[in-house]
Design a protein around this nucleic acid. Structure first.
Lengths: 200, 200
DNA sequence: AGCACAAGCGGAGTCGGACTCAGGTTATGG
DNA sequence: CCATAACCTGAGTCCGACTCCGCTTGTGCT
């Protein structure tokens, strides 16, 4: 149980592997070969497997770290905005991140969509981040209380499972706004972004 | 160019392969082995590969056929309901299909999410089916015109990338209703869920 | 500094699953 | 009922994830 600290070289290698993997995965090559990642990190595959159970475990660690970075946002947003606005901004933040980095899109998609228990951790953190926002909104009476962060996450996952067609970002943002509006309690919805409901 | 008709035995084998693959894939085992599928169809792998370029090509054909079945629904729904109601029913139809069959969920997810050009065809048909409904709604003035079938498809894909947790269906239906409400033009939205839209 | 040794590392080798191809089999048109 | 092209088979190839064990090295102790 008592995990003694890693030896210095081991810690360095572990970090190098994560950096290499992050480069490969977040750069969009979700099926980069382990051999290649190990080579980039300057170690052999054996070393990679000493640090990560499987290829997928490495993938998860990379995505989990990325998710953690994003999960810091809600608390900060809540400090600066009303709950519903904070929620809106966070949703758009995720979508925009996905738009600008194919890797992030794959990451979001993977974390949210996959069945594998492996991603449960990242998924849970992400869902909790959303719950934080949703609950604040419910407490303020501006957001409906019958949708869980987890469910919302799935819808976002779908939206983010993108492929950079021209104009994708616009549509993704639009449908995210629709989703957001639906989450707001009727009549209390903010009018912020000046989004005219276009007729047709 | 002029494809002469398949020999009788070849046609039979091809069909048997599709049946076997459908059983495997739609039953939820999205990574069934080719060997197994061939065995179930009573042929050898070589035969499988004579009919389908790759494993993924077979997968696609199965999913494409399934998608075609579902794509027949919109036209029929439009004949019996107002456009917005038809749209709503179709969205819920997809979600419910996904709920009752893990395989269909995987199918929807795969068709909608994957980057591979392989699924472009099925994706396009599905998007067109949605476009049909959206356009009818726009013409009737009840549905907004700034969201494409393709985009909607993605959001649904996310919602459907489910894993049968208890209560999933309820949440999926709920978030789909939210999405639907958002698609309706303000003030004209049907009253079903009792959630009048705020003017934006 | 020097030593003991557990932690760590390298990389050839195993294993499993998608895919191929040479040779036998069979539908089909004449 | 023959010729032949289409078809089928399944052992073998290829390739990528993962393993294993002998060698190397950081670390704690004297």
């Amino acid at each position: 149980m008592t995990a003694r600290p890693l030896r210095a070289d081991a810690r360095r290698n572990r970090e190098a592997l994560l950096v290499a993997a992050r480069e490969a995965f977040l750069a969009g090559d979700a099926d980069a070969h382990v051999e290649e990642i190990a080579r980039r990190a300057g170690v052999a595959v054996g070393t990679l497997y000493r640090h990560f159970e499987t290829r997928e475990a490495l993938l998860e660690e990379v995505y989990r770290r990325r998710a953690d970075e994003l999960c810091a946002a809600p608390a900060e947003l809540l400090g600066r905005h009303a709950p519903d606005e904070a929620l809106r901004r966070f949703l758009l933040l995720l979508v925009e991140h996905a738009a600008e980095s194919k890797g992030m899109a794959v990451a979001l998609e993977t974390i949210m969509a996959r069945d594998s228990p492996t991603f449960g951790d990242a998924r849970t953190r992400m869902a909790e981040a959303l719950d934080l926002l949703l609950e604040a909104g419910v407490a303020a009476g501006t957001v409906r209380g019958d949708v869980s962060g987890r469910t919302l996450l799935r819808a976002l996952g779908g939206i983010c499972s993108m492929h950079p067609t021209d104009g994708w970002t616009d549509e993704a943002v639009r449908i995210t706004e629709i989703l957001f509006d639906g989450l707001c309690v009727a009549g209390v919805a903010r009018g912020a972004a000046g989004r005219p409901r276009s007729g047709g």
